[in-house]
Design a protein around this nucleic acid. Structure first.
Length: 291
DNA sequence: AGCCAGGTCCTCC
DNA sequence: GGAGGACCTGGC
């Protein structure tokens, strides 16, 4: 049933950079070249040496490589071309791309991304991970696990989560975000928002729909659009991105969110989402323009 | 002890 | 329509 596959001939792939560029919360580091990822109700182990063009994926079902993992890891996209175009923009982008050359934008589950990024607001990464783990442990279903003693759980669906009273949700330490999660559950279960339809929607329309959920503003909507729906032209603008854009392109002068969005649209165009990932990873890892 | 963290809401002007 | 404060929680 379960198997290990090796994918070969992949460049611009670095598992550490992919997982630590802030787009995913459910993973665990085993060592520098091995990580466990929980996604698509599967627990896979990924082995990858920096600079190697082959990737080892353990414990996936036979046939899942084509169906699930190639799209998930965005392996069909030509990152040579993307990194090339962005590197040629200016010397800052060249540095940022060089630093995170192995980043790929994962195609994750919309519902999980929505709730995860609602939790992310005004929160720290370790705490975000804890909240999500608490929620999956408490309300998800135990996943079949072939070679690890650690237990992992599925991410509960909207239908499952909506049954949970607020107090119980707060036991997962989500704090003031609990009502936001509940509102997302309501809108999805009652059909006011159809997460599947967003795949085929124009980005600006999709963004407005996501923002109807309480606790979902422009930043969270853009994260969901980028990390789940593959809308590559969005430019999620958090404090790090704001500071790095101001620092690199505006001589440190403070810019309004609107101005940064406009700059990204004009300057990066269709590649804004990729640019955002390289810049975020570059700025955060090196603590550039930190307050 | 007090401040801060991958934002957003609410109130008031 | 924009500025300014409040917000759960745990780590430093």
């Amino acid at each position: 049933m379960k198997n290990a596959v090796i994918v070969e001939g992949i460049n611009c792939f670095n598992i550490k950079q992919i997982l630590e560029s802030g787009q995913i919360f459910r993973f665990q580091k085993i060592n520098d070249t091995t990580y466990i990822i929980v996604a698509k109700d599967e627990i896979i182990k990924v082995g990858h040496q920096p600079n190697s063009t082959s990737i080892l994926i353990c414990n996936s079902r036979i046939g899942d490589l084509e169906q699930i993992w190639k799209p998930y890891f965005d392996l069909e996209t030509n990152y040579m071309e993307i990194t090339d175009i962005l590197s040629n923009k200016d010397e800052h982008m060249q540095k940022a791309v060089e630093f995170g050359r192995g980043i790929r934008i994962l195609r994750q589950d919309p519902w999980e991304m929505l709730i995860s990024f609602i939790i992310s607001q005004n929160n720290s990464i370790p705490q975000i991970k804890n909240c999500i783990e608490n929620i999956t442990k408490k309300f998800g279903e135990k996943l079949e696990n072939v070679d690890s003693e650690i237990e992992y759980y599925s991410f509960p669906t909207a239908e499952e989560l909506i049954k949970i009273p607020e107090e119980e949700l707060r036991e997962c330490k989500v704090g003031f975000r609990a009502p936001y999660i509940i509102d997302a559950c309501k809108k999805v279960v009652e059909g006011e928002i159809n997460l599947n339809e967003i795949f085929t929607m124009k980005t600006s329309i999709a963004r407005n729909i996501l923002m109807k959920i309480k606790g979902v503003g422009p930043k969270i909507a853009d994260c969901v659009l980028l990390f789940a729906y593959g809308k590559m032209e969005v430019f999620p603008t958090d404090v790090w991105i704001k500071r790095v854009i101001e620092g690199l392109y505006f001589e440190g002068r403070e810019q309004k969110l609107q101005d940064i969005q406009q700059f990204a649209k004009d300057y990066y165009g269709e590649l804004a989402g990729y640019a955002q990932q390289y810049l975020f990873y570059y700025a955060r890892e090196n603590e550039l323009f930190k307050k």
